[in-house]
Design a protein around this nucleic acid. Structure first.
Lengths: 354, 354
DNA sequence: CTGTTAGCGCCTTCAA
DNA sequence: TTGAAGGCGCTAACAG
């Protein structure tokens, strides 16, 4: 029962090769190769015989060998933010659908450690291309390098303001949604609309969210209140957001409108408010950002700025395929707009629905 | 700027090979190979020179070539339920941590279409092993085949009762948690504890959850109420669970205790109850199963049977590594127990906390 | 329609 | 300490 150590490193199990099939079918390996790929030009009789033998031997082509000779792996690297956040998990789910529909495999990389040279995977012939979502720092090096050649790569997500990239890009424009959210709150009588962020980077004036927030409030003649909980790049943010927001409200009183950097934080904020016996939307109106399905299941149902995730993923894969076909095609770009979804966590919901 | 078409299929970009480094360093390719791997036996001077040249040329080893000759890819296939469910996303996150810590890559496969021969990926030398979680049907074929050799594979999750597998296994034992949940509800006065499932399979007597549910209620002398919403294998279950549960309750009145197949369904059930203006826990006590972080952020905070996810993932990777080292090592098995976490959605919470 | 030749980039093995 | 030979399994290109 112990397998023969025929070849030096042959995996103990199956590992039938083209040659073995060929020998048993009484033809040259090349004929087997042809027969197993799309038809091409093999006689019906031989083909059928070959297929039969291959099935009998349970032949599986060695993908490493094929990748070596073809220079392609039919594998795409996908890089996102931490998949512990449901937003990224959802994107992964959507991308998985796109890729498997095209018979591509997905190498899932680095949702946590952020400083990693992605393109080495392309150079290493481990993947044919890269889809990076909201992973600024992962592709920054490449984008900034002056290399004439950039491997097939699509960057999608909320654009980072500090660089203008030369890679194919799908930008999510949040500004519309943010304005809609702020106006929804102001129009229903909010006098103190705060913006809740998790760290310094997200509070910075170069980020689009705080910028739009500040501009919108200023235009409306209201004071700004940027709440930076400063939890760094911690992954499990919920607990910290919850406790620090409770502290903040105890110290400074509570805003009557709360716009959150993303849905995860909105959920944590919701909890903090309930801890304090504050009611949504009567005491505080609450809006998140991402469009998680879960938001609708809270009580009251939570409003959110919905990112067009399906569209983004479909387009990302489309762009990447095009790029893999033609490395020197002109740069591809698209911008998708995120809009507010009004739910009962906004007082505007009642006006809308009745 | 257009790259030379030197070799026929060379990818347009980098793709520096060992030979080019060798030529520039004035040594034999073999020496480069040695110098770049762990030291071995290369003179200090030559090594340094080689490393310098390699860096200068931005050399990246071709993983396909290495995989071909080594027979290993340092890649693991991970198969789970649909990653749109947060539970699986969380497992993915944990596994990613394990794998990257060991310098392994992760091929993420088939979280949706369930009938796929996973082991062809191992045969194809595309991955060195497989971690399958709650993906019965994906590994069923292999487990049932009488093949003497099973590729490195670890199956983890709630065990399927119908087969006794010969692969390495980590079983999650939910029965403890289910009993605890049911008793928590009965002890606080529930007279009608129902069990909510999504489809026929989950309602079947061969499944452990309904079995334990029925046995426990029977032992306590209570009637059983299995609510099967029969939504098949739909992925986005929330909406359907919500609407069908509302219908059910309108038709049959409401149980005063609701145990759910998993947390996703508990969340949907929570929403259905709120739609009906029913209060948790006053009108209905509610318990989910999985241990999602989100459960704690609802109001009231939702109780759940917590699966030991960290432990499971760590153990899965440990088992798989061992198996990859020794294909003929004895079968590895472990059982982890899930326990109830009592939160305010159970009346017992007040007794506990005060 | 099928076989031959050559080589993808790397590593193992043996020789110097 | 380094070099040379050979092959992993497959496929493109060209013969026949």
């Amino acid at each position: 029962m112990i397998p023969t150590k025929s070849t030096r490193r042959r995996r103990s199990g199956a590992a039938v090769t083209l040659h073995e099939v060929a020998k048993l079918a009484g033809v040259h390996p090349m004929t087997v190769s042809r027969a197993l790929k799309g038809s091409e030009t093999v006689a019906e009789a031989t083909r059928e015989n070959i297929l039969r033998v291959a099935k009998e031997l349970n032949y599986t082509p060695n993908l490493a060998a094929r990748a070596l000779v073809m220079g392609r792996t039919e594998t795409i690297a996908v890089v996102t933010g931490p998949v512990s956040e449901h937003y990224y998990a959802h994107l992964l789910y959507l991308l998985e659908g796109e890729l498997t529909a095209s018979n591509y495999k997905m190498l899932f990389l680095r949702s946590r450690d952020i400083n990693q040279d992605l393109f080495s995977f392309v150079d290493a012939n481990a993947v044919d291309g890269v889809i990076a979502i909201d992973a600024y720092f992962n592709i920054r090096d490449i984008v900034q390098s002056q290399s004439t050649f950039i491997p097939p790569c699509v960057y999608a997500g909320v654009p980072h303001p500090s660089w203008s990239t030369s890679v194919d890009t799908i930008n999510i424009d949040l500004s519309e949604g943010i304005r809609e959210a702020i106006h929804a709150m102001l129009d229903s009588g909010c006098r103190r609309v705060a913006y809740l962020v998790s760290n310094h980077g997200m509070a910075s004036k170069t980020e689009i969210r705080p910028r739009v927030y500040e501009a919108t409030l200023e235009a409306a003649g209201h004071a700004r209140e940027l709440i930076n909980l400063d939890i760094g790049s911690n992954t499990y943010v919920h607990d910290l957001v919850r406790s620090r927001l409770v502290e903040y409200i105890r110290a400074h009183g509570c805003p009557d409108g709360l716009l959150c950097q993303n849905d995860e934080m909105a959920i944590a904020a919701y909890r903090a408010l309930r801890d304090l016996k504050l009611r949504v939307p009567d005491d505080v109106q609450l809006v998140g950002c991402d469009g998680l399905a879960y938001m609708e299941y809270f009580d009251p149902q939570l409003s959110t700025i919905v990112q067009p995730a399906e569209q983004m993923c479909a387009l990302a894969w489309q762009f990447l395929q095009q790029r893999m076909n033609d490395a020197y095609a002109p740069r591809q770009q698209a911008t998708l707009t995120a809009h507010l979804r009004v739910r009962p966590s906004l007082k505007a919901f009642n006006e809308t629905s009745t």
